[in-house]
Design a binder for these strands. Sequence first.
DNA 1: GTGAAAGCGCTAACAA
DNA 2: TTGTTAGCGCTTTCAC
Lengths: 342, 342
Amino acid sequence: MAKANKRLSIADLAAELGLSISTISRAFNNAPDVSEATKAQVWALADKLGYRPNSLAAALRRGRSNMLGVIVPHINGAFFPAVVHGIEEVASQAGFNVLICQSNEDEAQERKHVEALLKAQVDGVLVSMSNTTSHFEHFEKVRNQATPLVFFDRMPTGLPNACGVVVDDYRGAYQVVEHLIRQGCQRIAHFAGPSTVNTTADRHRAYRDALQAHGLRYDERLVVRLRNSTTEAGAEAMQQLLDGPVRPDAVFSAYDFPAGGALQLLEARGLRVPQDVALAGFSNEPFTTMVKPQLTSVDQRGELMGKAAVQLFLQILKRTEFFTGQRIVLKPQLIVRDSSLR
Amino acid sequence: MAKANKRLSIADLAAELGLSISTISRAFNNAPDVSEATKAQVWALADKLGYRPNSLAAALRRGRSNMLGVIVPHINGAFFPAVVHGIEEVASQAGFNVLICQSNEDEAQERKHVEALLKAQVDGVLVSMSNTTSHFEHFEKVRNQATPLVFFDRMPTGLPNACGVVVDDYRGAYQVVEHLIRQGCQRIAHFAGPSTVNTTADRHRAYRDALQAHGLRYDERLVVRLRNSTTEAGAEAMQQLLDGPVRPDAVFSAYDFPAGGALQLLEARGLRVPQDVALAGFSNEPFTTMVKPQLTSVDQRGELMGKAAVQLFLQILKRTEFFTGQRIVLKPQLIVRDSSLR
DNA sequence: GTGAAAGCGCTAACAA
DNA sequence: TTGTTAGCGCTTTCAC
């Protein structure tokens, strides 16, 4: 095993080969104006010595790190991992390394991550906002650094000209509710997510609009604000509805896991799904096909979203102009399963 | 909004305040030998100007990046996200930023990530091996750079003195099989993972040993090698067993999702779980409590594992000595649920 | 308590 | 095709 481990630099290779450091540098960047013979020599020696270019030094000098910062609220469930996957794929094709951070739905952590990424000189930041974030100065800072900023899925409503990729949550939710109405449901309840986030706010709005468009009353008593997006929160919400003044015959949940929780609770209470209460969620989590009955849901095109976000970033990077508030809107996909078919 | 965006440096602050760059640097590092008044001045100006230290430059100069590289096979399911969570928590406490990479169970990608991390001058690498990895030179390279290398969950068997944190897979699997035997199962089948990976190899070995220790025959015909760790692979494997010469009365799956797939297939074939076939998986995925019957499984202590891995890394970093092959073994937790209770 | 100066490892003019 | 040189922004002796 190798012993003395003082870090090697191009200077060492240069000395060894009797070449100048610039030639070594050029060889590593595969510059066209270095002879193939020289390149071969350099690469062979590097291989033998275990030399590896220091990308920090290169980044410092070049003023470009080829690193892309990504902030997600979490990587639980299937959606954000899918997005991350899409991001990594396109980013690595374009020669970028990806720095992933989780905000854990906490604004303070989100700010810290933004700072850290900026200090690390990332060439761009992709963010899906924490759902507790209510101030946006940390995002403004990114843009003030002239660092491209692209949102995905969750965008701040209060930030003018924000670029991003979202799914048409309104449309997806509207389709769910229309579907439930067509199945004959009359008292459709809603498990609502936070109203501060575009996604869940849109789902809620679509729920209300779809009801009214079909002549059904929007009844506050049928709307429960979820504590979070877990099964437990869903079970609680379902219990609350069952204890309430109006017995729903369907529930549209802003997330899948709470819908799963509702399913368990209904079963425990001896109610049948979908005959007594139809259920639909949002996200198309894998578990939705493993429960009985399988859960109706809406697919959010996670991987595609990630890819689109990086492409948008690359576009912005190319332009010298300033940010133009581009927004890419993906079509969600309603997936009807047994939990809402009667 | 700010306009001309040439990056600021300590030199700009120094000029503005009539101080030297060293003082500015010291102020930012909160050095004790700078007067509080000066610090306050510097910080105020930085705040006003939106200056942010360039951590790349600092890392280059200091020879330490405070970045920790992490390579996971994927972030699907609940286990690896839990580990990552644990890693981030302890790492950020210790002042490290975490660079997460996914190998997608592919050796080539794993190698590329190792190279990229090393070039980025990370101070350490935490890895859970891809299950297709069969050569370990890329790991040796890390150690040859004198960069701490810590494995978690999946360790190479062929790398001497590898440090890492694992769960006692053998023990967990042994407990599962013993439990099934105590429930009266006589023909216990096994869905096996890759034999190249310590975790699934241990689960398989424990399965065989537990059978034999209880006077049951180890029958190759009851062992199916999974194509991968999805529900589909589990359904296939179950079908294969049902089509085979020996009808099992229990299945111990090396992963949870295939157990879920088996559950669905059994149900579709009109077989009852656990009465006709008892089921048990491994990982304690959240979905195991959402299906009916709920699935027996083994918890792998993901978050704890992540924390322990970082602590091990920090320990190694402190020592001047070389790697000693420390291994931390966590106790898994058998969680018995309805799918195996009869 | 503060400053001057060297240099981390690399890139990119500019020369030759 | 190759070499020389001046930094990128920061930390860190060593002075004063």
